[in-house]
Write a protein that binds this DNA or RNA. Structure first.
Lengths: 164, 164
DNA sequence: CGACATACTCTCTTCAAGCAAGTGAGGTGA
DNA sequence: TCACCTCACTTGCTTGAAGAGAGTATGTCG
């Protein structure tokens, strides 16, 4: 990932990971895609990123193998869409870890509320990010919802699409 | 964290977390501190960051409450040192998640090897990042070692110091 | 006193972010 | 058919941070 220094050859996995993940937009884009918002304008409008930066990040994410670009038909025309690959879907535990950390250690703004990670496969809230704290199974995007009380919404995530 | 846009008032915890963690240096600095490398020059030399950037990041991390700056005497003089706070030590699951993701989804460079997370409290390797996959206990820095075969070293982490 | 170490700060150049505007391919309405 | 729209970008401009290197303030040692 040649945004700044190239750390892809580092021996320490933390550093290799940060080569890709050490950018504030990457995880936000992946979060949107895992929420099923797969089109350029959907992602742009939901996270407030500029066109230029989103365009570059999407290209990088496809190069790095976290997203794949697909065309699909809707509204009588062809749209570009970005869907998670296995590597992209596997970012879920990282997002969960960030979320759990932030809930514990950043100030909750006015109007905020606890976001619960719901493991739909067993029906319970998980308090850990990689394996469900209730049933012990790995948390896969397609089995997880994020309960966001400030939006009065429980949003089901989407994983790697079955057909490509 | 006013490096770029300020996301500290965002309702979504992922975004609030990325306000602090969405920078490649932050996690690397915290990793060094959790390895007991607490002085300016130790951190600088082990991660290869410029003086100016390290200085700014350390100030930010103290402001954000992830590090605390302490003076200690060694070599007959007073040194500045940075030690993790509770919020800093709680980054360990995030680091583990990044590391596990990177081991699975980035190319292992020549000379690299699997880095095992050892839960010294039970003596086993954990394959998950927040609770030990072997015994189920939360992974706290003071109970964890990272086994780095490429350095032929098993490095014990350090948590929040008992005295401040 | 001068040499040295530590923990920074300052200066300079390069490059990305953020904002705004433009572009081109495809589709739509009159 | 031709102006107009939407989508998914690209281009240009300005500001500001990164990275590299040199300088500086404080304290210690001989």
């Amino acid at each position: 990932m040649p945004l700044r220094s190239d750390w892809s050859e580092e021996l320490c996995p933390v550093r290799r990971g940060l080569d890709v993940l050490g950018d504030p937009w990457i995880m936000l884009i992946m979060r949107e895609v895992l929420h099923g918002r797969s089109r350029f304008e959907q992602i742009r409008d939901s996270i407030g990123i500029s066109d230029a930066v989103l365009s570059r990040r999407l290209r990088l994410l496809v190069e790095e193998g976290l997203l794949s670009k697909v065309d699909y038909r809707a509204d009588r025309r062809t749209h570009a869409a970005y869907v998670a690959t296995e590597a992209g879907a596997d970012l879920l535990p990282v997002m969960h870890a960030v979320s759990i950390w932030a809930e514990k250690h950043t100030a909750m703004p006015a109007g905020g509320a606890h976001m619960a990670i719901i493991h739909e496969a067993c029906g319970n809230e998980s308090t850990t990010g990689d394996a469900c704290s209730a049933c012990g199974e790995d948390l896969r995007p397609e089995d997880v919802s994020w309960d966001k009380p400030w939006k009065s919404a429980r949003e089901r995530l989407v994983g790697v699409p079955a057909v490509r």
